[in-house]
Design a protein around this nucleic acid. Structure first.
Length: 506
RNA sequence: CGGGGUGUAGCUCAGCCCGGCUAGAGCACUAGUUUUGGGAACUAGGGGUCGGAGGUUCAAAUCCUCUCACCCCGACCA
């Protein structure tokens, strides 16, 4: 027994968190860097997670009255120029198409055929969708317009990390237009609630709903709301955003309608989105030193059955037994779909196979061997327990209990994540000095995992922002749940009323 | 765009400072033997124009010049 390697992922979280993250992504075969700088290849196991998120969220979006549509990848440069704040926000990270053909010269392909007007690869679609909306809306009877699109977008980021920040990423973006401010604001909150529901009940990722401070708003928005989650290095991850755009984009795009009084009015619009970043959030919320841990509801497969074949002559009977268990499991349902089972028949060593699935984060591993056929039993391993912790169950008992088992794992992940967040959220920071101490690592050279969330008062102001910048801390949001009490700003000590969440962030 | 660094086998890297046998290791891969409720061991094998171009030299992975790509730290960010 060689126990020198007690965890499957090296380094461990505590030793080098960013490197641990990369190794988890690699070991679980979720994604890899591509030949194109900053753009990732999402591998089948990672894409399966995205498909599950899509399937679930798409239903939620449709259940709230929205319809899917699709708009162009390319946006005429002039469209982006229409909204001043919007341009400023995205100008520095746009990929621009300037030519439409290639010509061979001296064996090289050279772009020719310059476009009259450059096309920007969409960093987000407010302006191009706004152009359509403007044509679609004439009367208050055409409103509300409730549209969503699943798409890829490109933001030419300086520094990229798989899933968390890539130059191209997949997302959904909802775009709606309304006849009144009130209705648009309600829409903004409704979709924020949908995102919080998705995060907590599907990704098992506890989140705080809140409003962004003006400095953190979406370029061109009147108000930006977000859900914020805590990762295991205690940094915050913005997991989704919902924007109330007021009439800013409607004015820029000319989305006007004749109201009941016969007056021309600009519509009130919203936009909201979540991206493949959610997968990064799931990884950093749940995974451990043995690799990925997937909440059952997003796992591409719920159960892997690993046949144990000690002697070649046992192979046929063991495989047959494994397939029969698989059939029975597939007749069970979990979260509204049949239980997803894979029988791993690959010709390789059992130990390797088993660890591979641990690292991929599959919720349940089932081993079946010759001895189990006789006794009609199976060996069950749960990913939320130790990798060697097994239980012997009767086959029918295991099959009938699978749905409940998956639910147990789902809620154990959520509870663990919530406890971790609560344990690392300080509500009692009394002074700016204490605030600073909380966010300062002991080791400046190689900062250890430190800090967390601070729930405290915030008065705002340039001085406060500068102090935060020095600490590399940001106001994550002003939680929707406000105490309304008076106190002192945890950054400056000035009198303040607003509650805010402070943290270092991704 | 500033400051630093790296390009050698599928992957991780050694060799470079101080030029010199046929360019190496570990992992992975292929085959065989043993092992088998479990992250195996042994043996044999396949795989490289040392990022690219030019130069110095009897001789370049190693020195020089240019160039390309990527990584890290900053500014920016779902």
């Amino acid at each position: 027994m060689n126990n020198k390697e007690t965890s499957a992922i090296s380094p461990r979280r505590a030793d080098d968190y960013p490197e641990w993250y990369q190794q988890v992504v690699k070991a679980a075969e979720l994604a890899e860097n591509s030949a194109v700088r900053g753009c990732m290849v999402i591998k089948p196991w990672g894409y399966g997670i995205w498909e599950n998120i899509q399937r679930h969220l798409d239903k939620m979006i449709k259940d709230t009255g929205h319809s899917n549509a699709y708009f162009p990848l390319f946006i005429p440069l002039s469209f982006l120029e229409k909204e001043a704040a919007h341009v400023e926000g995205f100008a520095k990270e746009c990929a621009v198409v300037t030519h439409h053909r290639l010509e061979a010269r001296d064996g090289k392909l050279v772009p020719t055929g310059e476009l009259d007007e450059p096309l920007v690869v969409r960093p987000t679609s407010e302006t191009i969708i706004g152009e359509s909306f403007a044509r679609w809306v004439q009367s208050y009877r055409d409103l509300p317009l409730l549209i969503n699109q699943w798409a890829n977008v490109v933001r030419w980021e300086m520094r990229t990390r798989l899933f968390l920040r890539t130059a191209e990423f997949l997302w959904q973006e909802g775009h709606t237009a309304h006849s009144t401010q009130q209705e648009a604001v309600e829409e903004t909150f409704k979709m924020l609630d949908v995102y919080a529901d998705l995060a907590e009940n599907f990704l098992a990722m506890p989140v705080i709903k809140g409003e962004k401070i003006p400095e953190e708003r979406f370029p061109g928005a009147v108000d930006t709301y977000c859900i914020e989650a805590m990762m295991q290095d205690r940094k915050a991850l913005q997991a989704g955003t919902s924007h109330y755009l007021g009439q800013n984009f409607a004015k820029a795009s000319g989305i006007k309608f004749l109201n009941q009084a016969g007056e021309i009015e600009c519509a009130y619009t919203t936009s909201w989105g979540v991206s493949t970043r959610l997968i990064g959030g799931v990884i950093m919320t749940h995974s451990d030193d043995d690799g990925l841990r997937l909440p059952p509801k997003i796992a591409p497969k719920h159960v892997v059955i690993i046949p144990v074949i000690p002697k070649p002559e046992t192979e046929a009977s063991v495989l047959e037994y494994a397939e029969s268990i698989a059939r029975d499991l597939r007749r069970q349902s979990f979260d509204g779909i049949p239980v997803e089972v894979i029988v791993d028949r690959r010709d390789m060593r059992g130990g390797d196979k088993s660890w591979e699935w641990v690292k991929k984060g599959i919720p349940v591993r089932v081993e079946v061997g010759p001895r189990d056929i006789e006794s009609k039993q199976v060996v069950v391993y749960r990913r939320d327990k130790g990798p060697r912790e097994k239980s012997f169950l009767g086959a029918s008992q295991a099959v009938e209990g699978i749905s409940q088992l998956l639910l147990d794992i789902q809620s154990s992940y959520f509870n663990q994540a919530k406890s971790y967040r609560d344990e690392n959220t300080r509500r009692d920071i009394a002074s700016p000095e204490e605030f600073k101490r909380f966010f300062t690592p002991k080791n400046e050279e190689r900062p250890e995992i430190h800090g967390g969330f601070v729930l405290g008062k915030w008065a705002g102001g340039a001085e406060a922002l500068k102090l935060l910048e020095e600490l590399k801390v940001t106001v994550r949001c002003l939680p929707l749940e406000q105490s309304g009490t008076e106190g002192r700003c945890v950054v400056t000590g000035k009198p303040a009323v607003k509650d805010a969440i402070f943290a270092k962030a991704y």
